[in-house]
Design a protein around this nucleic acid. Structure first.
Lengths: 163, 163
DNA sequence: ATATATAAGATAGATAAAGTCCGATATAGA
DNA sequence: TCTATATCGGACTTTATCTATCTTATATAT
C-alpha cells in the first residue's frame, strides 16, 4: 500500500520542470542529477509523461524535456495516476468480480469512500502550489529566499532536510 | 497502492467471526470455506491476528478461532494494519531519510494529509457496523438498497491496471 | 558528417506477495 | 493412555511486480 518509486520520481521530475516553468527545455541529465533520479529510469518515466501529454521530449543534441501545461493546471493526482494507473486501493473496487463474497458490500462502501477521499486530496494539489510552497525550505540560504533560484548554480544539489 | 490479499482475507475472517459473535469458536475450515480463503493461508493470517490479541486460536480436535473482543471495539484500520503494518502510502513518510530532495517538503505535507485521512476513515468503521450493514446484501449482484450514501459516481471500471 | 542526447524495447536482479507443505504440538474422546 | 483430529509455526515454492540497466536505433545542433 505505498507509492511506487517510479511515481515518486515522476513527481520529482514534474515539480522540477514546473519550477523551471512551462515551455522551458531542461536536459534529462540535469533533472536526473538534481532530482536524484536514475537517468535511464527517468527516460522511461518521461515516456509515460509524454504519452499523457504533460511534457514534450526533444531528441538530439541539446535535447531534453519541456513542460507543456501550466503548473497550476497539473494536479498531483494526475501525475501519480499516469504512473500507477487509477488509484483504487482495494481489488474489489477495480474488479467487482472478485467481490462475490457475502461480506463484501459494507466493506466495499468503506473502500470506495477511502479511495474517493484519497483521489480528491491528491487532485486538489497542483504543481504550482508545490513549487510555491516548497520554496521555503531552500537548502542553505536562510529561511525563505523567495521564488528565485531556478537558474543559477547547477552544481549545488540542494539537500533539504525532512519535515 | 492496493491492499494485499492477506489483509483482504483477514477482514473477511474477522467479519465472519464478528458475525458469529465474541467468544464463539469457529473452525478454521468453516471460515476458509465460507469466506473463500485458502485454508493454509488463513492459518498463517490467523497467527498474526492472534498475536495482536484479536482472536484466540484453539488447537486440537474441535479447534478453531475465537473472537476475543467485541465487534464494536475492533476497527477496520486495526485489522488492516495488523496485516500490512502502519499505513503510510509514501516511503518518504515512513523513512524520512529518503526525503532529502529539495522538492520534498510540500509533497510530504500532502502525503501526510492523505495518509491521515485514509487512516481516519478506516478507523471509523467497526466490525460491528460491517456485520450490521452487510445484512442487506443478497449473495447475487445488484445494488445495495440502503447503502448508496457516500458513493458518488458509479464509475467506469478501470481494467487491471497497476495500482 | 560527427558528436551529443534521447527513444524504445528487452532483460535481468531484487523484492514482495501469495500460496503450499510438513513435522510439531495440542485437544477431545474412546 | 492412545488415537484421530485440527491447528501451529516456519520453511519453502511460485508468481508477480518493481526497479534498474543495457542495447540498438533515431533525432538534432553545429
Amino acid at each position: 500500500m505505498r507509492l511506487t518509486r517510479a511515481a515518486e520520481y515522476a513527481i520529482r521530475c514534474m515539480v522540477y520542470l514546473a519550477k523551471r516553468g512551462k515551455g522551458l527545455l531542461t536536459s534529462r541529465q540535469e533533472i536526473a542529477q538534481r532530482a536524484e533520479i536514475p537517468g535511464h529510469f527517468l527516460a522511461k518515466i518521461a515516456q509515460d509523461l509524454a504519452r499523457a501529454g504533460l511534457i514534450e521530449i526533444r531528441q538530439g543534441a541539446k535535447g531534453g524535456f519541456v513542460l507543456l501545461k501550466e503548473p497550476a493546471a497539473i494536479s498531483l493526482l494526475e501525475v501519480v495516476e499516469i504512473m500507477i494507473g487509477e488509484i483504487y486501493l482495494n481489488d474489489c473496487i477495480a474488479r467487482p468480480s472478485t467481490c462475490r463474497v457475502s461480506y463484501s458490500c459494507a466493506v466495499h462502501q468503506v473502500w470506495m469512500k477511502a479511495r474517493d477521499q484519497l483521489r480528491t486530496t491528491l487532485s486538489e494539489v497542483s504543481l504550482e502550489q508545490l513549487v510555491r510552497e516548497e520554496s521555503c525550505i531552500a537548502p542553505s540560504r536562510g529561511p525563505c529566499p523567495g521564488l528565485e533560484g531556478t537558474d543559477g548554480d547547477p552544481e549545488n544539489i540542494p539537500e533539504a532536510n525532512s519535515v
